[in-house]
Simulated assay, not measured.
Amino acid sequence: MRQRNEKAILRAATTLFAKKGFDGTRATEIAERAGLPKANLYYYFNTKEEIYRAAIRHLIAGWDKALRHIRADADPFEALEAYVREKLDYARKNADESRMFANEIISGAPFLSRADRKHMHDITLEKTLIIEQWVAEGRMRPVNPRHLFIVLWSTTQFYTNFEKITCDTLEKPRLSPSDYEDAARTIVETVLRGLRPGKASSDP
Protein backbone atom coordinates (compact mmCIF):
# COMPACT_ATOMS: atom_id res chain seq x y z
CA MET A 1 0.00 0.00 0.00
CA ARG A 2 2.86 2.39 0.77
CA GLN A 3 4.35 1.91 -2.67
CA ARG A 4 0.97 2.38 -4.33
CA ASN A 5 0.18 5.56 -2.39
CA GLU A 6 3.62 7.08 -2.95
CA LYS A 7 3.27 6.40 -6.66
CA ALA A 8 -0.17 8.04 -6.69
CA ILE A 9 1.17 11.08 -4.84
CA LEU A 10 4.13 11.50 -7.19
CA ARG A 11 1.95 11.09 -10.26
CA ALA A 12 -0.57 13.66 -9.01
CA ALA A 13 2.13 16.08 -7.87
CA THR A 14 4.07 15.85 -11.13
CA THR A 15 0.98 16.74 -13.15
CA LEU A 16 0.30 19.76 -10.96
CA PHE A 17 3.95 20.88 -10.83
CA ALA A 18 4.15 20.69 -14.63
CA LYS A 19 1.07 22.89 -15.02
CA LYS A 20 1.37 25.30 -12.08
CA GLY A 21 4.98 25.15 -10.95
CA PHE A 22 6.22 24.49 -7.43
CA ASP A 23 4.96 27.73 -5.90
CA GLY A 24 1.58 27.51 -7.61
CA THR A 25 0.84 24.00 -6.38
CA ARG A 26 -0.71 23.45 -2.95
CA ALA A 27 -0.31 20.29 -0.89
CA THR A 28 -4.09 20.08 -0.60
CA GLU A 29 -4.38 19.90 -4.39
CA ILE A 30 -1.85 17.09 -4.55
CA ALA A 31 -3.74 15.10 -1.92
CA GLU A 32 -7.07 15.64 -3.65
CA ARG A 33 -5.71 14.61 -7.04
CA ALA A 34 -4.07 11.53 -5.51
CA GLY A 35 -7.35 10.60 -3.82
CA LEU A 36 -5.84 10.73 -0.34
CA PRO A 37 -6.48 12.79 2.80
CA LYS A 38 -3.98 15.60 3.26
CA ALA A 39 -2.76 13.97 6.49
CA ASN A 40 -1.74 10.91 4.48
CA LEU A 41 0.35 13.07 2.23
CA TYR A 42 2.59 14.03 5.12
CA TYR A 43 2.73 10.43 6.29
CA TYR A 44 4.68 9.55 3.15
CA PHE A 45 6.47 12.86 2.54
CA ASN A 46 7.48 15.47 5.10
CA THR A 47 7.07 18.50 2.83
CA LYS A 48 5.91 19.57 -0.60
CA GLU A 49 9.57 20.16 -1.47
CA GLU A 50 10.36 16.54 -0.65
CA ILE A 51 7.64 15.43 -3.07
CA TYR A 52 9.05 17.73 -5.75
CA ARG A 53 12.59 16.44 -5.31
CA ALA A 54 11.35 12.83 -5.40
CA ALA A 55 9.64 13.54 -8.72
CA ILE A 56 12.90 14.92 -10.12
CA ARG A 57 14.79 11.83 -8.97
CA HIS A 58 12.22 9.59 -10.64
CA LEU A 59 12.81 11.36 -13.96
CA ILE A 60 16.58 11.13 -13.62
CA ALA A 61 16.26 7.39 -12.98
CA GLY A 62 14.28 7.05 -16.21
CA TRP A 63 16.96 8.89 -18.12
CA ASP A 64 19.63 6.70 -16.54
CA LYS A 65 17.81 3.64 -17.82
CA ALA A 66 17.93 4.95 -21.38
CA LEU A 67 21.68 5.56 -21.06
CA ARG A 68 22.31 1.87 -20.32
CA HIS A 69 22.45 1.24 -24.09
CA ILE A 70 25.69 3.21 -24.38
CA ARG A 71 28.31 0.61 -23.49
CA ALA A 72 31.89 0.27 -24.67
CA ASP A 73 31.23 -3.18 -26.13
CA ALA A 74 28.08 -2.13 -28.02
CA ASP A 75 27.80 -1.13 -31.65
CA PRO A 76 27.93 2.70 -31.50
CA PHE A 77 25.04 3.33 -33.85
CA GLU A 78 22.77 0.61 -32.52
CA ALA A 79 23.45 1.92 -29.00
CA LEU A 80 22.80 5.56 -29.86
CA GLU A 81 19.67 4.71 -31.85
CA ALA A 82 18.33 2.67 -28.94
CA TYR A 83 19.10 5.58 -26.62
CA VAL A 84 17.28 8.07 -28.85
CA ARG A 85 14.24 5.81 -29.17
CA GLU A 86 14.00 5.08 -25.45
CA LYS A 87 14.50 8.74 -24.56
CA LEU A 88 11.70 9.78 -26.91
CA ASP A 89 9.44 7.03 -25.61
CA TYR A 90 10.08 8.00 -22.01
CA ALA A 91 9.28 11.63 -22.75
CA ARG A 92 6.06 10.62 -24.52
CA LYS A 93 4.90 8.39 -21.66
CA ASN A 94 6.03 10.78 -18.91
CA ALA A 95 5.24 14.14 -20.44
CA ASP A 96 4.47 15.88 -17.14
CA GLU A 97 7.82 14.83 -15.67
CA SER A 98 9.62 16.17 -18.71
CA ARG A 99 7.83 19.52 -18.58
CA MET A 100 8.28 19.83 -14.83
CA PHE A 101 12.03 19.33 -15.20
CA ALA A 102 12.20 21.82 -18.08
CA ASN A 103 10.45 24.42 -15.89
CA GLU A 104 12.86 23.64 -13.06
CA ILE A 105 15.88 24.29 -15.26
CA ILE A 106 14.40 27.45 -16.80
CA SER A 107 13.80 28.72 -13.26
CA GLY A 108 17.49 28.30 -12.43
CA ALA A 109 17.25 24.77 -10.96
CA PRO A 110 16.48 25.90 -7.37
CA PHE A 111 15.44 22.40 -6.25
CA LEU A 112 17.88 20.28 -8.25
CA SER A 113 20.11 19.03 -5.46
CA ARG A 114 23.89 19.06 -5.54
CA ALA A 115 23.83 15.27 -5.34
CA ASP A 116 21.49 15.00 -8.34
CA ARG A 117 23.58 17.43 -10.36
CA LYS A 118 26.74 15.50 -9.51
CA HIS A 119 25.06 12.24 -10.51
CA MET A 120 23.97 13.68 -13.86
CA HIS A 121 27.46 15.07 -14.44
CA ASP A 122 29.14 11.79 -13.53
CA ILE A 123 26.96 9.56 -15.68
CA THR A 124 27.26 11.95 -18.62
CA LEU A 125 31.05 11.89 -18.22
CA GLU A 126 31.00 8.09 -18.11
CA LYS A 127 29.09 7.92 -21.41
CA THR A 128 31.22 10.71 -22.89
CA LEU A 129 34.33 8.61 -22.31
CA ILE A 130 32.70 5.68 -24.10
CA ILE A 131 31.96 7.80 -27.16
CA GLU A 132 35.53 9.11 -27.10
CA GLN A 133 36.70 5.48 -27.02
CA TRP A 134 34.53 4.66 -30.05
CA VAL A 135 36.06 7.59 -31.92
CA ALA A 136 39.61 6.57 -30.92
CA GLU A 137 38.93 3.04 -32.17
CA GLY A 138 37.74 4.37 -35.52
CA ARG A 139 34.20 3.17 -34.94
CA MET A 140 32.80 6.72 -35.19
CA ARG A 141 33.80 9.88 -36.96
CA PRO A 142 35.31 12.52 -34.64
CA VAL A 143 32.63 14.32 -32.64
CA ASN A 144 32.46 16.31 -29.42
CA PRO A 145 30.46 13.90 -27.22
CA ARG A 146 29.16 16.64 -24.93
CA HIS A 147 27.71 18.61 -27.82
CA LEU A 148 26.31 15.38 -29.25
CA PHE A 149 24.48 14.70 -26.00
CA ILE A 150 23.11 18.25 -25.93
CA VAL A 151 21.80 17.81 -29.48
CA LEU A 152 20.19 14.47 -28.61
CA TRP A 153 18.68 15.83 -25.39
CA SER A 154 17.28 18.82 -27.25
CA THR A 155 15.69 16.79 -30.02
CA THR A 156 14.26 14.05 -27.83
CA GLN A 157 12.71 16.49 -25.34
CA PHE A 158 11.34 19.11 -27.72
CA TYR A 159 8.36 17.07 -28.94
CA THR A 160 6.99 16.74 -25.42
CA ASN A 161 8.10 19.99 -23.81
CA PHE A 162 6.83 22.09 -26.70
CA GLU A 163 4.00 19.87 -27.85
CA LYS A 164 1.73 22.68 -28.98
CA ILE A 165 4.23 24.18 -31.39
CA THR A 166 5.18 20.68 -32.53
CA CYS A 167 1.53 19.93 -33.29
CA ASP A 168 1.20 23.24 -35.17
CA THR A 169 4.31 22.45 -37.20
CA LEU A 170 3.08 18.95 -38.05
CA GLU A 171 -0.46 20.30 -38.60
CA LYS A 172 -1.96 17.84 -36.16
CA PRO A 173 -4.26 18.33 -33.14
CA ARG A 174 -2.14 15.96 -31.01
CA LEU A 175 0.92 13.77 -31.30
CA SER A 176 0.62 10.02 -31.82
CA PRO A 177 3.14 7.20 -31.29
CA SER A 178 3.77 7.23 -35.05
CA ASP A 179 4.88 10.86 -34.82
CA TYR A 180 7.47 9.87 -32.22
CA GLU A 181 8.56 7.03 -34.50
CA ASP A 182 9.01 9.54 -37.33
CA ALA A 183 10.97 11.76 -34.95
CA ALA A 184 13.27 8.89 -33.98
CA ARG A 185 13.87 7.98 -37.60
CA THR A 186 14.64 11.59 -38.51
CA ILE A 187 17.07 12.06 -35.61
CA VAL A 188 18.85 8.83 -36.48
CA GLU A 189 19.07 9.61 -40.19
CA THR A 190 20.15 13.24 -39.84
CA VAL A 191 22.26 13.29 -36.68
CA LEU A 192 23.71 9.81 -36.30
CA ARG A 193 24.17 8.78 -39.92
CA GLY A 194 26.84 11.41 -40.49
CA LEU A 195 28.94 9.93 -37.68
CA ARG A 196 29.56 6.63 -39.43
CA PRO A 197 33.25 6.19 -40.24
CA GLY A 198 34.23 6.67 -43.86
CA LYS A 199 31.12 8.66 -44.69
CA ALA A 200 30.79 12.37 -45.22
CA SER A 201 27.87 13.92 -43.41
CA SER A 202 26.15 14.62 -46.77
CA ASP A 203 26.47 11.01 -48.04
CA PRO A 204 23.19 9.09 -48.47
Rank of each mutant, 00 (worst) to 15 (best):
M1D: 11
R2Q: 13
Q3S: 09
Q3M: 13
Q3D: 12
Q3L: 13
R4V: 11
R4Q: 15
N5D: 12
E6Y: 09
R11K: 12
A12Y: 03
A12E: 03
A13K: 11
T14W: 03
T14L: 02
L16E: 10
D23I: 10
T25G: 03
T25N: 04
E29N: 11
E29A: 12
L36I: 09
P37V: 10
A39E: 05
Y42I: 07
N46L: 09
E49L: 04
E49R: 13
Y52C: 07
R53V: 15
A54Q: 11
A54S: 14
A55Q: 05
R57Y: 00
R57M: 01
I60S: 00
I60A: 01
G62W: 01
G62H: 03
W63E: 11
W63K: 02
D64T: 06
D64R: 11
K65D: 06
A66L: 06
L67E: 12
H69M: 03
H69A: 10
I70W: 11
A74V: 03
F77I: 04
A79H: 06
E81R: 14
E81Q: 10
E81H: 02
A82E: 01
V84K: 03
V84P: 04
V84I: 13
E86P: 01
R92K: 11
N94A: 06
D96C: 06
D96K: 05
E104W: 04
I106T: 08
A109G: 02
P110Y: 06
F111W: 07
S113A: 08
R117V: 05
R117G: 15
D122W: 00
T124M: 14
L125V: 06
L125I: 01
E126G: 00
E126I: 00
Q133H: 07
V135L: 03
V135T: 02
A136L: 09
G138V: 08
P142Q: 09
P142S: 10
R146C: 07
H147K: 14
L148W: 07
L148D: 09
F149C: 04
I150S: 15
V151F: 11
W153R: 15
W153V: 06
T156M: 02
Q157G: 10
Q157V: 09
T166M: 08
C167Y: 05
C167V: 01
T169E: 00
E171F: 00
R174I: 02
P177I: 08
D179K: 13
Y180E: 11
A184F: 05
A184I: 09
R185G: 10
T186M: 14
T186Q: 13
I187H: 13
T190R: 15
L192E: 06
A200E: 15
D203Y: 10
